[in-house]
């Protein structure tokens, strides 16, 4: 590809931001419980589903991080979604097939998926 104008450069920049987006530390954060309990309950599969969703939707600024056991082992897999400036929402018993729903309604549109929520934190 050859950049022929300032507009071309802008377009390339938008594309390129996907490369470095997560280093900026902004945007939505998704936290997956990856303690032994979480992994036993299938956290790896949930994580894979999240990453797949991320790539499908090309969401470069969403940060996916992990955390250890927080003591609600029977509710694992636990997935937290934190939108900037909003409450930290914890979803429990998350299955890979729930991930698409969490993305389309909460991560992107800010609508909490009520039936999966186990906690809301400030």
């Amino acid at each position: 590809m050859v950049i022929k104008s300032a507009e071309d450069l802008k377009r390339l920049k938008e594309e390129a931001k996907a490369l470095t987006g997560i280093r900026a530390g902004q945007g939505v954060e998704i936290i997956v419980g990856m303690g032994t309990c979480g992994i036993a309950a299938g956290a790896r599969e949930v994580m894979s589903a999240i990453l797949e969703e991320l790539n499908k939707r090309e969401l470069a600024d969403v940060r996916v991080t992990q955390t250890g056991c927080i003591g609600m082992c029977e509710k694992e897999v636990l997935v937290d979604v934190v939108r900037p400036g909003e409450k930290r929402i914890t979803y429990g018993n998350v299955k890979p097939q729930d991930v698409t729903r969490i993305f389309s309604s909460h991560v992107i549109n800010g609508q909490i998926v009520d039936d999966l929520v186990v906690a809301k934190l400030d």
Binding site: S5, A6, L9, L12, K13, E15, A16, K17, L19, T20, G21, R23
Partner: peptide, 25 residues
């Protein structure tokens, strides 16, 4: 320390060559 120096896209993602574009255009 923030970008891969052998990857021009990473420079462009951090506003690279925008100053040049502004000056030239």
């Amino acid at each position: 320390g923030h970008i891969d120096p052998e990857h021009i896209q990473e420079y462009i993602a951090r506003d690279g060559y925008e100053g040049l574009a502004k000056a030239l255009t």
